[in-house]
Amino acid sequence: MTSGAEILASVLLLIGLAFTLLGSVGLVRFPDFYTRMHAPTKATTLGVSSMALAAVLVIPGGIVAVLMKALTIIAFLFLTAPIGAHMMARAARSGGIAPCEETRIDEMPTEPVGEDDGGHPAG
């Protein structure tokens, strides 16, 4: 009844659940926005990718079709998650949200980025 593929898929699903839950716990418990941003955009991406690989193992009907869909999901997540995180960080920084006290390295200038960007004037 329980084949090896099902066992491997179960392990992958539980790994994905662990990463997704850790991302959400980090979203709740980290002190400021920039640390909160790390947990969901990295851990959750890996969790969803692990679940997509589990889907390849157990869903019947054309391994190539399911594999291509799963690889598309994984590639798209890996492409879009850093871009979305970058856009949110820039929105937070130009909105004047300060990092927490423990943050030592702060390489970005303190003026809002929307003002001095030539290609995208404010307003």
Partner: peptide, 11 residues
């Protein structure tokens, strides 16, 4: 902040 809510919706 608004970006916290945006991050929550994204997650």
């Amino acid at each position: 902040a608004v970006v916290d809510r945006l991050l929550a919706v994204d997650t």
